[in-house]
Design a protein around this nucleic acid. Structure first.
Lengths: 333, 333
DNA sequence: CTGAAAGCGCTAACAC
DNA sequence: GTGTTAGCGCTTTCAG
């Protein structure tokens, strides 16, 4: 067995209570006593036991970060900031990788593993509004990305509609007139719908109408983007003079497709993505893209969760959209 | 308070012991009793309390994965497999991001946070051999990547020397004669030294001698690679006909540098990286690179750690090198 | 300012 | 097969 408070207490000639006071930085301990206890702790190599503390305190100091996969740069970034931020609030982060499996996301709604965590920050990809009913109501939770549940849950996201609108304004401002929306998915996730909405609003604003053939379905992946573009071009469908891709993977795939057909970017077609993935900076040409403020996203999520856990009166709205920035790079100018 | 075993026991009209038996799938419980208990659990919404269990069992079921940063694709991949594999062994993974800070890596050696974890898998970047002394000897630990500690710790890695050797054999086999080693760092990490060793062995084997001016120092990053190459070229130093970069970031940076100076890859210079980062597949030209078997790496690490934690007689060596593969792509042929 | 003592929820001897 | 029971190490009332 490891050394316990009791052992330290005996060694220092004080009661366990006093040791606890020292460990928890209770103010009113005589300096001399504190010193003795600290010495005993060091001598014995005392390490507090987290399990016992949790058991007693009814909180574990652990929060779960539930994401599909760290290979998506966005989630890797998110994890970094969440871990840092959580630490500042006294939490340790426990990772749950869902691989975009519905089963696993549902499990989190039910309170996760064995009351192991005090709450969860989740990027849900597969949940549907109805799933909100499966939620254990007393389990603190914050959704990152899209609001997908119906009895709505605390949530922090990117203003998809506004960002898409900003993209269209930017492109039409450059004089582009035939805009393609790549990754169109009217039946799909909220994300897709919101971005589509912004896109269409932007067109309307510029007095343009949406060409149905320029709303192009595609898997939100590189191969998806490449294929869709190649098919579109090979089918002799109307050429756009600008493409807004639903995410950077799509955009980079499209870039490949365009190149393979000898079309120059941005000369003939301007290209804009979404997410500001690392590759966006390093592709040739580098990719103009919407950069969500991941930092703010993570900070806000942790703060929201902390409030729920501690039950403090919240200064925060239960639903927050953070900033974004349109990073203009070579692919559009 | 949440509902406890006691509550369930009362509701089912059995003793707490029996509930425990059911929860832990103890074999010898009468089916009828089991059913009753299960029903009571469902009715009350019982969830076992992890803290209590840990306290009692003196293990938490948590293991720490300690890595610098998930933005490096290698670690993102690693995390994915480790989490999956850990789950199969009944562990949950807790993330510790070090940001390559020595302080944080040292803390892990000391046993991590409050006996919260049963052990750790760490990719140490900043530790020096002497730091091995700081290690808490009874804290199970597996190093991934390089063996850096002196009283050696269980470890699983990539055969750096052999891989570098394979690269050189491949390049000389293609008829290349003036090989540059990019990212040379003789005073640096073991990784660097091992790869350098393999590189030099390969040259010797081919009857070539190492040109000192072709051992090029550089930060192991994209900008580092680009700068180093541009400086080298602009200084009029001897042109290589092949470059082996210590990692893919360097290689991709170099690619940019070469392109900016109008040098064609692979026609004039063949380029090989190390790590098989995702971008390596999507660059133009795509990058030939050494692909470590991350799956095997992670599986082995978890298995090793599990053995240490359970104290089972080990079938595994305490030091294991996993496979690698040379992924030949456009940049070298 | 410090001691004594009561559990938090669970596991695992030990009985029967 | 099931009940009794003793803690695991800690926080926290309650007394001094």
């Amino acid at each position: 067995m490891a050394v316990s408070m009791h052992d330290v207490a005996r060694a220092a000639g004080v009661s366990q209570r006093t040791v606890s006071n020292v460990v928890n930085n209770y103010e009113f301990v005589r300096p001399e006593t504190r010193r003795r206890v600290l010495e005993a702790m060091a001598a014995l190599g005392y390490v507090p036991n987290a399990a016992a503390r949790s058991l007693r305190a009814a909180r574990t100091g652990l929060i779960a970060l539930v994401v599909p996969d760290f290979r998506a740069r966005f989630f890797a970034d998110l994890a970094g900031v969440v871990v840092r931020e959580a630490e500042a609030h006294g939490y340790t982060v426990l990772i749950e990788l869902t691989g975009s499996e519905r089963e696993r996301e549902l499990k989190v709604l039910g309170g996760g593993r064995n009351q192991l965590t005090d709450g969860a920050i989740m990027a849900a990809l597969t949940l549907k509004p109805d799933d909100g009913l499966h939620r254990r109501p007393d389990y603190p939770m914050v959704l990152v990305g899209d609001q997908v549940l119906d009895p709505p849950v605390h949530h922090v996201g990117t203003p998809n509609r506004q960002a898409a609108l900003a993209v269209v304004r930017y492109l039409t401002g450059l004089g582009r007139r035939r805009l393609m929306l790549l990754g169109y998915a009217p039946e799909g996730k909220v994300t897709a719908r919101q971005r589509t909405q912004g896109f269409l609003e932007g067109l309307a604003e510029a007095g343009l109408s949406a060409h149905e053939e320029l709303l192009v379905h595609a898997d939100w992946t590189r191969p998806g983007g490449q294929q869709a573009i190649e098919q579109h071009l090979d089918a002799g469908l109307p050429m756009p003079d600008a493409i807004f891709a639903m995410n950077d993977s799509l955009a980079l795939g499209a870039l490949r497709g365009l190149r393979s057909r000898g079309i120059r970017v941005p000369r003939e077609i301007a290209l804009v993505g979404f997410d500001d993935a690392e590759e966006a900076r390093y592709s040739t040409p580098s990719l103009t893209t919407v950069s969500p403020d991941v930092n703010a996203l993570a900070r806000t999520a942790v703060a929201m969760l902390h409030e729920q856990i501690t039950g403090k009166a919240s200064g925060l709205e239960p639903y927050i959209l953070v900033d974004f920035e349109l990073k203009v790079r070579e692919s559009s100018q």
